[in-house]
Structure formats: C-alpha cells, structure tokens
Nucleic acid binder design. Sequence first.
RNA 1: GCGCUCGUAGCUCAGUUGGAUAGAGCGUUGGCCUCCGGAGCCAAAGGUCGUGGGUUCGAAUCCCGCCGAGCGCACCA
Length: 715
Amino acid sequence: MLTAVSAWQEALSAEIEARFGVALDPAQIPFTFPPKTELGDAATTVAFALAKTLRRPPAEIAGALAGTRLPGVREIRTAGGYMNLFLDRGWAVERLLSRGFLPAGLEGKIIVEHTNINPNKAAHVGHLRNAVLGDTLVRCLRYLGRQVEVQNYIDDTGVQVADVVVGFQRILGWKLRDVRSLIALMRDFTAANGTYVHLQDLIFSWYGFWTADNLKRFGLDGLIPEQACALPYPPVYDYFHGAMGRFDAFCWGLYARVAPWYAQSEENKAARLDTLHLMEEGGNETAEMAALVAEEMVRCHLCTMERLGIRYDVLPHESDILKIGFWASCFEKLKTSGAVHRVPADSEDKNRGCWVMALQESEEFKGMSDADKVIVRSNGTVTYIGKDMAYQLWKFGLLGRDFHYRPFPGSPYPIWRTDAVSSEPGAPSCGGGRAVYNVIDVRQSYLQKIVKEGLRQMGHEKEAERSVHFAYEMVALATKFVRSEMEKGAHFELSEEELAKPFVEMSGRKGLGFQADLLLDRMKDRALAEIETREPELATTDRAQWEHRAEALATAALRFYMVKYNKNQVVAFDLEQALAFEGDTGPYLQYACVRAENILRKAAEQGLAVPDPADPSALSECAPHFDEEGWGLLSLFLRVPIQVKMAVDSLDLNIVARQLYDAAQAFHAYYHHFPVIQEPDPARRSARLLTVALFARLLREGLDQLLGIPVPERM
RNA sequence: GCGCUCGUAGCUCAGUUGGAUAGAGCGUUGGCCUCCGGAGCCAAAGGUCGUGGGUUCGAAUCCCGCCGAGCGCACCA
C-alpha cells in the first residue's frame, strides 16, 4: 500500500491544484484507515486540511474531490469531511500477494547493532527486550527492501569479564583446566539430556571437582572424593542457586558472589585491578581464562537467541578494536579535527591530564553544568566512549580500513567474528553502512548523544544525522513477582523501601533478574502441558514433535510479550503475565493461523476444491462472492506496509504487533460467524475458502517476516 | 539544579504527523462445543483520559502551570 498511497497523493495533489488552484505537497496529503472496515479500505482527511485555506466546509471540499480517479480505487464515498476509498479487490489482492505495495531493493546498507550482552553471565529478560526489538527492526527494514547487516558487539575486555575470572580464580580457586573441564562437562550434559539438568547435581557428582582444596574449602576434609560425590545435598548446594546445567547460568551465580567478596577486604578488591592488568598484558593463564570464558559465554548467548530465531552477521570484539589500532586511528582524527583537547596536567581543572571533548558549544548539551566529557583518562587509557566512537566510525566506513574475520567456533549457525591479525578464506567485509541503528536502552542516551556529537565535531555531519540511537525503556522486575520469589526461598538484598515500589531494577552484580533460558524453559513447560491436554497421545507417539511445538509456542509468547509494549514503557516483568497464552499473546496469533490452515486441510481431505490464492482466474471468480466481513478481514493486511513504515520511522515497533493482532482477532470472529466447509452454496463456499487461504498465507508471512514468530502445523 | 520519559477501566496496556461513538487483554458476571480445534467467540458491568488553564470547527493527542512516579547528567561500562 506504500507505493499505492504515493500514487494517490500525486493524483490528489494534481486534482486539488486543478480544481482549487492550491499547490499541496503530495507527501503532506494524509492517508489513514477508517475505524471500521465497512466504511472503506483506506481514507484521506485532506478535506479537513484544505478547509482552513479555502475557507469552505470540509464536506463540500470532499464532495468536490470524490470524483478523482485514483489507480486501483473503485469508488470514493464521502462521510462529512472524510473521503473513504473502496478498492478494486482483485487489484488489491494481486498486489498483496506479489508484494506490489512494497518498495524493492533500496540502495545502501543499513547497520543494526543489538543484543551486546557482557560476556560474563547468562542473558536475562532485559537483554531479551533489546534482542527482540533489534531483531524486529531488522526484519521490518528488510521487509521494506533494505539491505541490513546485523552486529552484536562483544565487550570481552571489560571489568565484567574480569570479575567472573576473579570468581573462578580467587573464590573457587580454579585453574584454567578446571574451567575447561567444566565447559566440556556442561556441553556433554546438555547434549545428552537437553536443557533439564540441574547444575548442582552435575557439579557435585563430578569426581574431578572434589580436589583436596575443594573438600577443605567446603568443610568436607574428612571425606574422599567418592564420598563427596555421593552426598545428596552438600553443604554448598545453595552456592550455585539457579544454575540449570548451563555455563552461562553457572557464571550468573558466580558473578553475584564477587561483589560481596570484594566488600570483604581491600586485598580482595585489589584482585580486580590485578586481573584487568593481566588480561591486558596477555600471554598468561588469567588472560587465557578470560578469553575462554568470554567465548563460551558468547556461544551460550548465541544459542539462547537462536531459540528465538535471532541471528547476527558479525560479532565485533572490543579487544580487536584496540589490537588492530582502530582506537589509535580514531584518536588521531579526534585530535586533528580539534574535537578533543588535552587539559594541562598542572591546571586546577578536575579533568587535568585528560583528553576531553568540549560540549558546551553544542545545542544538544545546553544547560549542562559540566559540559566536558573525558575521552582519554589522565593515565592514558581510553574510556568506553572513545572505543565506541572508533567503532561508530568503522560502521560508517570512515576509518578507511576494516577488521580481519574468522568463523566464530562452535556457533549454532555459521557466523563471523572479528580478528586483529589475519582473515580466513571466504571472510566478508563488514561495516561501511549508509545508516546505523544502535539498539541500546534509554539510560545510555547521554553517551549515545556524545558519540553522535563526536562524529559531528570530526566533520561527519551527514553520518551524525544517520546515526540513530534506538532507545527503549528497561525491563524491571515487578515487586509483586520478586516478593513471591522470596517467599519461595530466593534471597535478594532489597530494602523495605525498594520492596514498597512497584518494580525493582535488575542487577547482574546482585544476581537480581530473571534468566532468558529459564523463562523460555518455563514457557515451554507450560506449552508442553497445554498440548498434552489436547493431544495426550503425542507425548508417547512423537516426542520430538511435541517439543518442537512447545518451543514454537514459547518463542511466540516471549517475542510478542517483548514487542507489544510501547518502547517508552518500563516493562515490569511478571512471570504469570509473561506465561499467559490467552488473549493478547503470541499463541493467540499462532492459533488464528493454525485454525485457518486446519480448515484448508479439512476441506482438502473432504475432496473440496480449495482455490489457489495465486491463481488470477480463481480470484476473479471468487471476488464477487466475498462476504463483506471476509473482505474486511483481508483488507486489514493492506495496512501492514504503511504500519511497518510508520513503525520503522518512529521506532514504535508495537504498531506492527498491534496490526497483526487485530488481524488475528478479526479472523477468530469471522471463524465463528461464517462456516466455511459447512456452507452449502458452492460459490460462496469457494469464496470463503479463498478468504481463509489468503488470510492464512498473509498472517503466516507477517508473523514470520516481521515478528519472527514461527507457526507450527498444529498446536 | 538541568534534561528525558510516564500518568487512560479494578489490574496490564493500545490509542503516531489533532479527526468518525476513547479501545484491547486479564479479572468479574452471564451465555456459546452431537456443528471447520473452547489457546476461541458473543454479551454485560467498568472512564471527571493525573490536575488547572490555553490554542480551534474539533484535544487523550499541541502549548503553559501544578501534582505524582521513573531514569539520566563519572577519569564505570
């Protein structure tokens, strides 16, 4: 409908000029949709807009324009100032199926960066919102004909990874080979038993874990390893609370132990800096452990996201940005363009000795009490914001150089990661985009603004304009939910004051949050049970099918939950609400599609001829027999391209979810009021079969291409 | 202090360049499976759209004030 609307705008603009002598920019002619489908397939309120300049009543203007000939439009009916368009149905359906309402193959690569989880712990529901929004944006852009490169940035050099390494080395007393064994063991168990292994059972029954040191550490010195393995509930059982046989979940628990451990002594606190230094130096066991942990963690995250149908093209690593010298190049540009200056070391300024970017000149930062931002610290190290600027320059191809690339090992699908030294055969070239979307939560708006300002000050005005921060509100935990978890025995460090608020912020450091895989597992369990009540025999006859359907339902429920809210709305996560399969949920949309396809299958089984949507003669034969309600249902899909465009322009992706939900809702109502197979009149039956076939196809396509929601054959 | 965001039904939320009778879901109440799958449908009850002004043919939407809530403004990322 996008392409049709612009044609209508042109035609109307010409007609208005001819009739009233008023030149109106075609793009300014507003097109909307009537509140009820029987009022028309599309509408324009241009008469209201003209009423002011022409000083004539809107209804009169609408009446005068009603005779305008618009391509594909069979009739224009006016209602007050509204002009309601009724389309030629054959024309509309043909274009719906051939994607004739969509622009194709638009020039210029668009880069979308999303997910960006610190590789030191399992993904939680907050990360899911980021990944789902990012992936939905990618799908919408591709739907609109854009070429998209998806990047997932890996911060493998920061304090977060260091903290987990400290946990392994100093709290658990593990060596590199212990971590290696753990990873290998986890992979074996996951492969053998799926996702339902509790780590506690695993780790404590692991003979190798019970070294003399560990026996002593956990107060079991008198025992031999075999005895410790056999203990049903070792004294440290709670130590690994919540880990589910996954390495990332293990690190989640471990990471939460590190902050309290730092708090115990100054000596402990010093371990963080020591570790960071060792990681930076390289060539030692600590650095190797950090790399190992980060890589395995990324693998875990890729698997989690794979469950949701979320994939990436490339994984840029922060360590490579430094090693390959991107930061050095960026720093040169910053200095030569005058974007940064050095504050003299002997000055009184609090930033003495630092390289800072001055922001007080910029409109954006007016009213700031302190408008200087430190880019390079007085000790010569670069801040996060500096590295991000280098990364952003590369994304636009402004560094004039590229990374090397090698395949990321052991990923669930082929994917490239950056490398600082050399490329492997078949390596792609990445970056160099025309526009860039950074999907990052709203709390980083200030920093993202600075990155954009940096581009501007380096003289890249155009790129700064095309640098979009896709800001969304965080996912917090509903206090109601946290309380119920605490009643079940979970321990969180929360004050009464915090518990009095409607929601609490998640915190990886505190281990406060809900893990993505855990949520998906809970949803899957729920789905398995639901399926079992409907098809009890499936559990024994086809277990793989049973699981496949449950996983699809979990994916749908989760993705829809994450995309249905407005991006500015804080999502207060509540397990009960997230686990819902009824009403305004993903499974409701899947069910509409499954139901429609069921009718088609049943009809075919009974030997009824199901009209082929792609066959023009079937279409012209059926079109006159469409029920008005059936057409109203199909006409909702005319809105999709415009809604997707609006969603991408405003970054309010819930528009897309809403639109498909409305279509599903309209179908469920149609289903109950219009029997298809039972309809005795053959012509009418054929028309209804075609309606259902078209609906099923359009909804399946929409769910898959736009929302990334898979639809199983049955559910 | 400065900046951003939010406040709509008992609860969770839609309502997008100001437009047709303010809508969904959950929950409540009452209906609907010998009939294409009841993860569904139909109906009822439930609203001073935080509040007070303003702009205009028209305001939940735009402007100003006030009240309440969240987030940001580091040589952390």
